[in-house]
Design a protein around this nucleic acid. Structure first.
Length: 450
RNA sequence: GGCCCCAUCGUCUAACGGUUAGGACGAAGCCUUCUCAAGGCUUAAAUCGGAGUUCGAUUCUCCGUGGGGUCACCA
C-alpha cells in the first residue's frame, strides 16, 4: 500500500448462521482500525456456498451490526460477483496457473471435474500485523481446488478476487484463517494485478475449556443476538469484546466506541486466545447501565413490567427505578426479579408469614408486635406529605436503637415487603406512602397476635 | 499425525533486561442503619519446565511440555 492510498478493510462473514461473538470482535477491530486511519470498511457477505447460505442469516448479521452500532461504508453480496470470479478463473487457466482436473467422485454431488490451482510449491513468508513473521511451505498444500466449475468458485478464489477488485488493503481476520493465508497469497500472486494486502490474524475467543467457541458446543451464548435478547447494552458488548485480546496499556477499561477508535492500537493486540468471561461482561453492562439517564432506565423497566406483570403505575415505577437499577446487571434481570417476587410488593400487599416477621436473632413474636405497634403510632402522627425514607428513619431511629435495631427494623421491613431480603424499611416506607405503610403494619400486627 | 500459532494470578491483562511482578473481573473478609443490593477498605492469588546469553531475565535464544488452530468440491 502506498502512503497516499486509502485503506480499505472488510469484514467477510458467510451467512450460514447468526453473527458469532468472535465475528463481531473481528468486525470491531477492522472497524476501529479503518476508522482511526480514515479508511473504508466494507461488509462483504460471502455467500458463494449457495447450499448453506441463507437470506435470513444475512439479514440477521446486518441487524446485529445495526444493534451494535457499527456502520459499514458498504454492504456487498459476494454472489453478485460470480461473473467477475469466472473471468479470473478463466484467466488463471489461460495463464497456466490453474487447470481443469478430472476427479474421482467420492460423494454424491461431487463434480467429476474441478478446477485446481497449480501450486508452484514454494515458501511463502509474510509479516502478520499481529503474529509477526510467519513462514509456510506451500508444497504441503498440493494443487488445491479453487472452483467446482467456472461458475462455482470456492472460498479461496472468490475471497482473493474480491479483495483484489474491491481494493482491499488490509485483511484482518480470525486466526483460523492463518493457515489459509499462504494459499491465498499464491492466488493473489498468480493474478498479479496488485501487491498483496497486509494481513493480521486475531487470536480466537475461547470457551472455558480453551477451545474455539462454537454454536454446536457452546450454545446461544456465542451469538450476538442472544445478548440483544437478554437485554445487554450494545456499548457494553462492544467495550467488553474490544478488551478481549486488546487493551490500551493504561488502567482504564471503560471506553465508548469513539474512544476505542482513538485509543485502539493494533500492535497491542494479544497473540494468545482469550477465554470469554461472562462475569466481566456482566460487570461492563452494569457500568453502562449506571451511565444511562434515569428516564431511559425507567422507560425500560416500565416496558418490562407491563409486558411481564401488567403493573403500570408511573408514580411507583418512578420511585422504584433506582432500587431496581441497583439490583440488576442486564435488563432481563428485571424479569428475573419479578419471577422471584422481588417487585410485586411495591404494587400490592404481600402475603405475610408470621414466623418470618419475627427477628430470628433474638426476637419474640410479642416483641415484634409491640415494636410494630410503637412504630405505627409514631407514623400515625406524621404528615402524609412528608412521609419519606429520610423522615421515617428520623422518626423511629431512636426507638430502634432503644429496642434493638433488629427487633424493630426487621419486623417492619418484613411486614412491608413480605420478604426476607428486600430494600431497607425506610425506602419501603417512602415508596409505599403513609396510608399503605400503616395498613401493612396493622395487618402484620393482627397476624402476630392471632 | 503434518504444518502453523501461542504460553504472567481462576479469568482478561500491565511490565517492551533492573518493579515489593501492577490493574480489572471473580472469590474471601471487614465497614457502612435489621436482611438484600449498591458503595468503601483489605486479603488471597501468577511469570509452564530446563538449558543458555547477560552483572541481571516475565522480557532475548534454543530445547522440552502444555494448549489452540488448520489440514473440504465450507467459509
Amino acid at each position: 500500500m502506498k502512503n497516499n492510498e486509502q485503506m480499505v478493510l472488510r469484514f467477510a462473514p458467510s451467512p450460514t448462521g447468526f453473527l458469532h461473538i468472535g465475528g463481531a470482535r473481528t468486525a470491531l477491530f477492522n472497524y476501529l482500525y479503518a476508522r482511526q486511519n480514515k479508511g473504508k470498511i466494507i461488509l462483504r457477505i460471502e455467500d458463494t456456498d449457495l447450499e448453506r447460505s441463507k437470506k435470513e442469516y444475512t439479514e440477521g448479521i446486518v441487524k446485529a451490526f445495526e444493534w451494535l452500532g457499527l456502520k459499514f461504508d458498504d454492504t456487498l453480496l459476494q454472489s453478485d460477483y460470480f461473473s467477475v470470479h469466472r473471468k479470473y478463473i478463466e484467466k488463471l487457466i489461460e495463464n497456466g496457473h490453474a487447470y481443469v482436473s478430472k476427479e474421482e467422485v467420492k460423494e454424491e454431488g461431487q463434480r467429476a471435474e474441478v478446477i485446481r490451482f497449480k501450486n508452484p510449491n514454494k515458501k511463502i513468508a509474510f509479516n502478520d500485523l499481529i503474529k509477526g513473521d510467519v513462514v509456510f511451505d506451500t508444497t504441503d498444500l498440493g494443487d488445491f481446488i479453487i472452483a467446482k466449475s467456472l461458475d462455482e468458485p470456492i472460498f479461496h478464489l472468490s475471497n482473493v478476487v474480491d479483495d483484489i477488485t474491491m481494493g482491499i488493503t488490509h485483511v484482518i481476520r480470525a486466526e483460523e484463517h492463518l493457515s489459509n493465508t499462504p494459499r491465498q497469497i499464491l492466488i493473489w500472486e498468480a493474478i498479479g494485478e496488485k501487491p498483496r494486502p497486509v494481513y493480521g490474524h486475531m487470536p480466537l475467543i475461547l470457551s472455558e475449556t480453551r477451545e474455539k467457541l462454537s454454536k454446536r458446543k457452546h450454545g446461544e451464548m456465542v451469538s450476538v443476538e442472544y445478548y440483544e435478547k437478554m437485554g445487554y447494552l450494545p456499548e457494553a458488548m462492544l467495550n467488553f469484546i474490544a478488551f478481549l485480546g486488546w487493551n490500551p496499556g493504561t488502567e482504564e477499561e471503560v471506553f465508548s466506541l469513539d474512544e476505542l477508535i482513538e485509543k485502539f492500537d493494533i500492535s497491542k493486540v494479544q497473540k494468545a486466545g482469550a477465554i470469554f468471561n461472562p462475569q466481566k461482561l456482566l460487570w461492563y453492562n452494569k457500568e453502562y447501565l449506571k451511565k444511562l439517564p434515569i428516564e431511559k432506565v425507567q422507560e425500560e423497566i416500565t416496558n418490562r413490567l407491563i409486558k411481564n406483570s401488567g403493573y403500570q403505575n408511573d408514580e411507583i415505577i418512578k420511585k422504584i427505578t433506582p432500587i431496581i437499577l441497583e439490583r440488576i446487571n442486564v435488563w432481563s434481570d428485571v424479569d428475573q426479579m419479578l419471577k422471584d417476587g422481588d417487585i410485586q410488593y411495591f404494587f400490592e400487599k404481600p402475603i405475610l408469614d408470621k414466623e418470618m416477621i419475627v427477628w430470628k436473632k433474638g426476637g419474640t413474636t410479642q416483641e415484634a408486635a409491640e415494636n410494630l405497634k410503637l412504630v405505627s403510632e409514631i407514623f400515625e402522627k406524621m404528615d402524609e406529605s412528608n412521609f419519606s425514607s429520610e423522615s421515617t428513619k428520623e422518626a423511629i431511629w431512636k426507638i430502634a436503637e432503644e429496642k434493638g435495631k433488629g427487633n424493630v427494623l426487621w419486623p417492619l421491613r418484613v411486614s412491608l415487603s413480605g420478604k426476607e431480603k428486600s430494600p431497607d424499611p425506610f425506602t419501603l416506607c417512602g415508596t409505599l406512602g403513609k396510608a399503605e405503610t400503616l395498613s401493612r403494619i396493622s395487618i402484620a400486627i393482627e397476624l402476630l397476635l392471632k
